[in-house]
Design a protein around this nucleic acid. Structure first.
Length: 263
DNA sequence: TTTGTCATACCCCACTAATG
DNA sequence: CATTAGTGGGGTATGACAAA
């Protein structure tokens, strides 16, 4: 999808991007090879050519951070296919307070589809540790992380750094007119949680931390399991939502073979 | 080259919905 | 609850193209 993207160029929105596709220019290489494009003046094309060449070099060099900066936030999802193999899902639990009132993250969970890492407050949760783990990946996946998890971590863990492309599934779902929180989406797409944490919500996680903090080992284990389940379903959900977003973008209408399976 | 017209990208605002 | 980013609506600014 990223090779088909032109909406990040200044002055090109969704409409113009589709017009470019309609004219037969489907990829960055097509664009660079075309001597002239209708609706785009020569000096402007020259500027676009430069930017596309830079993006292409970044993609060839797997420079995810450059591309994160080059794309508008709402279009980061377009990088998913390119970086799926090096994507990490993140979800946090907190003690229930806001950073300004003594709030802190209790658990930060990372899951890449194979391995799960859990950073726990007072044990191994530090900005350095989190940065080190994130550094091994090319893309970040969250559910409403842009609105909650990321700002919360930035406010409570000085030095933590988020520069990766960020696929926020919550806003993708909203743009697709799929409403409801993470749990609701899991049900909609037939994902079933481990019985021990079924029906739990974020508030329960707050209470579990209270007990875990006082030495309740069982509560601690349940809290970690809950967080792990939260992160474990993000990647399969991303797969589903990415396909739907791609279909909604309209690119499949212009590709020679419609291998999209849009419904 | 200048002007007029049209399309559309962009900006600002209040609102929404999700998080623990 | 309080908090937050993204969204959508509506107005404005900008750029492409064609006619003069």
């Amino acid at each position: 999808m990223i090779y088909h993207t032109f909406s990040h160029l200044p002055g090109i929105g969704e409409k113009l991007e589709r017009r470019i596709w309609r004219s037969g220019v489907l990829t960055w290489d097509d664009f660079l090879a075309a001597p002239h494009l209708e609706g785009i003046s020569a000096p402007r094309k020259e500027l676009y050519d430069k930017q596309l060449a830079a993006c292409r070099a970044a993609l060839d060099g797997r420079d995810a951070e450059y591309l994160a900066g080059a794309l508008k936030r709402r279009d980061h999802w377009r990088l998913f296919e390119a970086f799926r193999g090096e994507a990490v899902c993140l979800d946090i639990e907190t003690n229930g307070f806001h950073p300004s009132q003594g709030g802190y993250p209790t658990v930060v969970g990372l899951h890449d589809g194979f391995d799960a890492v859990t950073l726990v407050h007072g044990e191994n949760l530090t900005a350095e540790n989190l940065n080190r783990h994130l550094a091994g990946y090319k893309m970040l996946i969250t559910f409403y992380g842009a609105g909650f998890d990321i700002p919360f971590l930035l406010a409570t863990l000085p030095g933590v750094r988020f520069a990766l492309p960020h696929f926020d599934l919550c806003f993708a779902a909203k743009r697709l007119d799929i409403t409801g929180g993470l749990k609701s989406l899991e049900v909609q797409f037939g994902m079933v949680r481990d019985g021990s944490v079924q029906g739990m919500n974020g508030y329960d996680a707050v209470r579990l931390w209270e007990r875990a903090r006082l030495g309740d080992y069982e509560a601690r284990e349940l809290l970690l399991t809950y967080n792990r389940e939260d992160t474990a379903y993000l990647l399969p959900l991303a797969d589903i939502l990415y396909e739907k977003m791609r279909c909604a973008s309209g690119i499949a209408d212009y590709l020679p073979v419609n291998a999209c399976g849009c419904n």
